[in-house]
Write a protein that binds this DNA or RNA. Sequence first.
DNA 1: TCATTAAGTATGC
DNA 2: GCATACTTAATGA
Length: 231
Amino acid sequence: MPKLDESLLSDLPPFCLLEKSQIREILDRAVSRRYEEGSAIFREGHDADRFYLLLDGYLRVVRTTPGGDQIIVLHISPGQLFGIAPALQRDTYPATSIAAAESIALSWPTSLWPEFVANYPGFATESYKTLGQRLGQIQDTLTEMATQAVEKRVACALLRLVNQTGRKTEEGIEIAFPVTRHDISEMTGTTLHTVSRLLSSWQKDGIVQSTRKHIVVTAPHRLVVLSGIEG
DNA sequence: TCATTAAGTATGC
DNA sequence: GCATACTTAATGA
């Protein structure tokens, strides 16, 4: 395996306060691995033997209901830690992580977590900050699911994807990884048919443009109106 | 308002 | 040509 470059970590929040030598230390103990689109990095309920940092690509974090269908809890973007069960005092992963596009991640044995927290300034606070942000986002979508109509939920979900992973193009902002209507239905607690109908009608209205697994939001401001958020 | 059923077209390996 | 993605209409809770 080629030696990893220090610049991979030096600008990321959990590591930005560290000395070069410390980053070297961290990288030398990391395992780097590539994941194909659709493959699982780890699965819900399995022993949390490693924690991870996403270098490139996108992940979806899913939980399976007793009935057997999946819920997409959130997405992970490059630069984010994930699988940090040790921070939650857990010895199993609370959810499954799937590569939404071809992805590359670093990982370390969970046994190193206490050492990272103790030795590397800023690592602990940044980790808990991202955990807090994720919890907040999950709570937002939860209350949204309970109170808002389907159209607003789908609009919000699209906006969230655009804000977290959007890339600007001539036509608008495109979601940076493959998303199906089925995926969106799993994010919003509806059916793929309803999502398909909504996207079709939004396309007719010039708000989005979509082809198979690919969505561009051409009029984000109108989607914001549809999402019904105040302000 | 929305899920379900069903029956179709389009797309890509 | 097959599986997967997507569309659309009809029906009914």
